[in-house]
Amino acid sequence: MDKGLYIASVFFIFMGIIGTWLGLFAEISETFYEMTGIALVILILGIAMLPIALFKGGKPPVESFIPIFALLVVGFFTIGWNFVVPAEEAGPTTGVVERIYLLAGEYWFNETNPDIVVSEGSLVEVTVDNVGVVVHSFRVFGVSEDSGNILPGEKVTVSFVAGKAGVYDYICTIPGHVELGMKGTFIIEQSNQTATSE
């Protein structure tokens, strides 16, 4: 066993696991995604070096497998778990589809930023039609993904499952547009089925 190489490869595998988790699954910040490329390179480099570190020169001592076991556990609970349980409880939909049509202009949604009310577990499809002259976007903060840039004259549909009941904001994520008024209330009501079953 080569001690220096062993320490380096265990360190690299650990860094690779944490980096991949931050990049793909942690949902702390979207920009961590850009870290995934180098994290995978470090992870695979560590995995490639580990057998040489372990078996170079003779049998590895038994205790050298303890950190590797710990890495497997860490790897499973950060990365592997996402494959075992693919989606969170956002999955169970009631099958109800709610279609919402929004106009986006300077600087409003449907001129008055109306409240949008949907029921819990429904599949929401929001179509945003940019009738203005500058770029806009749409996102229900904490519920949906960002629509990305919607150019003037473009129509984009954002679909998502209305998860936990509560009061959220729907906004335009272009910097400065929220301050100018592109912000409304998005309410997810508790559906009747769950209400009666309680």
Partner: peptide
């Protein structure tokens, strides 16, 4: 490096 990757995800705040 890791800190450089972190950007506050709240889009309601300004850029």
């Amino acid at each position: 490096t890791v800190w450089g990757f972190y950007v506050d995800p709240d889009p309601r705040k300004s850029y």
